[in-house]
């Protein structure tokens, strides 16, 4: 295990963390501010990726596709809020889970009907179509660096919005004590709509950015959704700062774990047993991390909501 490999893996872990952050940021606001469990958040990531694919097909330019996808993802979030989610705010979590799960099934199937079941691909923008040489023979695509930079920029913008603007103040207040905010005469429904729409747009943005790295296919957001929930539980529901720290933490633990655990086990047992057990342990690591955080800080690392 060389230092170079570890440094490369840290870079990879950061990139995974940034994509996780883009998804978790919207989810944590929706969950933290509204107390609403939105399983369909992962599907909005998929919608973003398909919009990028469609936009690229229409315009032939990734940047134009991105510019088209963002308002459409926002619109999609608003339409879903209007049609489905606003009727669920006062219902219990089970109803929310059932209804948003239904939205997952519907949109996954819709994507299949429109675009077919096969995996699709989107090329990165041309001006980012070059690579850095990490070590001899191994290149790191510039696009991946761009994803990291874009994710960090979004984190910065979100932080500014949350801490420096009136809407941000309301969101923070809503996350801490929604009943009081409502009692003070704030139009909570409208606040929910804004949070929801921009949450959906962030997930869509993550989908667009991920499309050139991963493949675009029905159900692509389902696995990431689970990890995104792990991120917001570790970070503390409703906290953007928590989501950011937890996403990077989960990204690093997952990526480094997959390299280090098997290698570590090989030191104490034979290679084939290590190959059997290593991957199993590595895929559990983020859940172990979550369990540990829940044990010592049940509200998450940066709890936004006061304990009730």
């Amino acid at each position: 295990m060389s230092t170079t490999l570890i440094l490369i893996q840290i870079l990879n872990g950061l990139q995974l963390g940034v994509i996780l952050f883009l998804i978790a940021a919207g989810l944590t606001l929706v969950f933290g501010v509204m107390g609403f469990i939105n399983l369909a958040h992962g599907v909005q990531y998929m919608v973003g990726a398909y919009l990028a694919y469609w936009g690229y097909g229409v315009t032939g330019s990734f940047v134009l596709a991105l510019l088209m996808a963002l308002p459409l993802a926002l619109l999609m979030g608003l339409v879903l809020e209007f049609l489905v989610f606003r009727h669920l705010y006062d219902r219990d979590h089970l109803s929310q889970v059932l209804a948003t799960f239904g939205v997952i099934l519907f949109l996954n199937q819709l994507a299949k009907v429109i675009f077919g079941p096969a995996s699709l691909s989107v090329p990165p923008p041309e001006f980012l179509d070059f690579s850095f040489t990490l070590i001899d023979g191994l290149l790191y695509p510039a696009y991946r660096i761009a994803v990291i930079v874009a994710g960090l920029l979004v984190a910065l913008i979100l932080w500014l919005v949350i801490t420096r603007t009136r809407v941000g103040m309301l969101i923070r207040a809503g996350a801490t004590n929604p009943d009081m905010v409502s009692a003070l005469g704030v139009n909570v429904r409208q606040l929910f709509l804004i949070v929801f729409g921009f949450g959906a747009m962030l997930a869509g943005f993550a989908g667009v950015m991920a499309a050139p790295i991963f493949s675009v296919e029905p159900g692509m957001g389902d696995n990431l959704l689970i990890v995104a929930f792990v991120v917001i539980i570790i970070g503390g529901a409703g906290s953007i700062r928590g989501a950011f720290v937890a996403a990077l933490l989960v990204g690093l633990v997952d990526t480094l774990g997959r390299t280090l655990v098997t290698d570590g086990l090989r030191l104490v047992m034979d290679a084939s047993s290590a190959n059997q057990i290593g991957p199993a342990i590595a895929s559990m690591l983020i859940y172990v991390l979550m369990a540990l955080v829940l044990f010592w800080r049940p509200e998450g690392l940066f709890a936004a909501r006061a304990a009730r």
């Binding site: 170079t4 490369i8 893996q9 990879n12 691909s121 191994l138 991963f214 493949s215 990526t255 390299t259």
Partner: peptide, 29 residues
């Protein structure tokens, strides 16, 4: 989803060929 960690291992492993069984979307990525 993301094979960059595995690809880094391949690059540092001195292998002259890789054998993969990654069906469907895994293979695309």
């Amino acid at each position: 989803q993301d094979y960059s960690a595995e690809i880094a291992r391949i690059a540092t492993s001195d292998a002259d060929a890789v054998f993969a069984f990654t069906p469907g979307g895994m293979g695309v990525r």
